[in-house]
């Protein structure tokens, strides 16, 4: 197999990886925000649900979850494509982590800030919007960067359950007898480019929004 065909296959896998990352990260943000809202709500059943969700999905290994989504769900009549199953699995898994990141970010805001906002007569929504969240988001940039990198590396597990992406493409090429130095080298370069690149971007954002003291 010539180098162009090989690189084409790997790029094809890489595009799938990017798609899975994009969809599941956005999904995780939605799920995580929803669960975080549940966890701080005054409604007991929702709070209990949020707690249970986070405890369960933080404790289960991602690969087990993916295996359940891909090989388990069809047995209860939910037949999804492998792509949709892994996006679902990663979004559910990372959602629990997003929820905890949000919560610890909000908790990192000094209590005096909230008390001051409340003393000024801000309502719940106002103090959250004008005082708490702007400060919380600044310290959350780096943790969210870590979650993102985690999702990128997590997508490689899709190769274990037969969903098309970069690691899977590498594995297929190797079974077909391509030069392992080339395939693994290229795949590694792509992963490093994404993780270091996103680390750089999140670092830039963090420096941009950081408080100048």
């Amino acid at each position: 197999m010539g180098f162009p065909a090989l690189a084409g296959d790997l790029l094809h896998g890489f595009v799938s990886t990017v798609e899975i990352v994009a969809l599941s990260f956005v999904g995780a943000l939605l799920v995580g925000t929803l669960i975080a809202v549940c966890r701080i709500s005054p409604v007991l059943p929702l709070r209990a649900f949020g707690w249970l969700y986070v405890e369960a999905f933080r404790a289960v290994p991602l690969l087990v979850l993916l295996v359940l989504c891909v090989f388990g769900l069809p047995w209860i009549g939910l037949t999804l494509s492998p792509f949709a199953s892994v996006v679902l699995g990663i979004a559910l898994y990372a959602g629990a982590i997003v929820c905890e990141t949000l919560r610890s970010g909000v908790r990192g805001v000094p209590l005096g800030q909230v008390e001051a906002a409340r003393a000024l007569g801000f309502t719940f929504g106002q103090s959250l919007r004008h005082v708490v969240l702007p400060q919380a988001f600044r310290v959350m940039v780096q943790p969210f960067g870590n979650v993102f990198i985690g999702v990128v590396l997590g997508t490689s597990l899709c190769a274990a359950v037969g969903a098309q992406e970069l690691t899977y493409a590498t594995k297929v090429l190797d079974i077909q007898g391509a030069n392992p130095l080339v395939t693994f080298g290229l795949a590694a370069v792509l992963y490093i480019a994404v993780t270091l690149g996103s680390g750089y971007v999140f670092g830039r954002i963090e420096r941009r929004v950081r408080f100048q003291r």
């Binding site: 990198i149 594995k171 079974i175 392992p180 395939t183 693994f184 590694a188 992963y191 490093i192 993780t195």
Partner: peptide
């Protein structure tokens, strides 16, 4: 540290599982 923090474990497993035998 930066290298192995940026690589998925599964890719490394395939290096050992498929790459090394090929070499």
């Amino acid at each position: 540290v930066e290298l192995f923090r940026s690589l998925p474990t599964l890719l490394l497993i395939f290096v050992f599982l498929l790459g090394l035998p090929a070499m």
